[in-house]
Design a binder for these strands. Sequence first.
DNA 1: TTCGCCCGAACGATCGTTCGATAACGACAG
DNA 2: CTGTCGTTATCGAACGATCGTTCGGGCGAA
Lengths: 197, 197
Amino acid sequence: MEKSECNKKLLDVATQLFSERGLHGVSIRELSQAAGASISMISYHFGGKEGLYSAVLQRQFACFAEIHEIRERVSDPVEMVESYLRWTFRRHRDNPYLLRFYTSELTNPTAFFSTLVMPVIDEVIVIMAKAIEEGQRQGRFREDVDPTNAALALAGMVNYFFLSSLATENLISHSPERDEDLVQQYLKIFTSGVGAK
Amino acid sequence: MEKSECNKKLLDVATQLFSERGLHGVSIRELSQAAGASISMISYHFGGKEGLYSAVLQRQFACFAEIHEIRERVSDPVEMVESYLRWTFRRHRDNPYLLRFYTSELTNPTAFFSTLVMPVIDEVIVIMAKAIEEGQRQGRFREDVDPTNAALALAGMVNYFFLSSLATENLISHSPERDEDLVQQYLKIFTSGVGAK
DNA sequence: TTCGCCCGAACGATCGTTCGATAACGACAG
DNA sequence: CTGTCGTTATCGAACGATCGTTCGGGCGAA
């Protein structure tokens, strides 16, 4: 039998509201009303408000597993950096709520941080650090920077663009049409820096 | 007459608790109990829970004004980048709660975001973008990157190090003794990139 | 009839705020 | 010096509102 629509509708609505105001900022009454469902449906389908939140979190962070496919497909270190940048842009574009849960959990971790969030973040950082380390072994990357730190710097550059968008929307265009241009700019900065040759 | 200690104690306790769990995650009962004060003191001194939160926010973001002194003291673009990096490291070290309010407001903005948070963030980005632009005019920085975007990339690199610390604490050392080393690494990456020459 | 799915009233707990009482203290008049 | 008054800081009980959960029942398909 098909699992009813109520379930999916609740997940969708909860994704938006939780991302906007956090776990404690939304009540189950507002949640269920926005989903056109009854209050008790949240406890019925998800075992309570926290259960719904964890279901949202799981669906949000599922996409991070894609990094493994990228790593399998791409072997060249520089190309790996470019793929990571493009993948991250697309990830945020496809899912405008992701970054809110991402940083919300990093700064105000809930009970699900250590089981649902931290593992997938670490996986990405470790994989990128390994790619950079391989680049160093190949003589393509300078060896006087720590690979993990370089991976963090890369992730920071691109994620911060979306993180700061609420504050900088009148300073810089956040239109998706600029994405590929930005990918190239970040790639340039990361590999060659902003210094004139 | 001296303003009582109750006021200051409430501010200190609220800073920690709000940073850990957000505006909606803490009750005034827990707040006042942790401060050793009565429940009614919050409404009495700050006009309510939100008033206390805004007082905390104001005190947190006051330090961003220091960027103006730095800009007055430093004229060389590269030196300005280095000063920004060192200043940001010290800012986060001196105040471990700052980044939580910073990102919490960026992802789950409260009513005070547009008046207390956004203006100071924009100021820093604009000042750094101008410094980078000047570096381009001097021929020290390449001209094919957008100054504002470069400023965002710089801010992203260093802020993300602290933002991700909860997830990456067993991947990389976050000891303050490494700070100067990290400043130099970020400076290197930003000005020269990770590419081998 | 049975079994998922769903409803909404009801419950106890907790929320933020308000209010009357109290104590300490300086100013001032007698 | 002393008694009174107004101000300020603090308390805790009480209030109405809202919180998340539970529960008895209704509905439709098997």
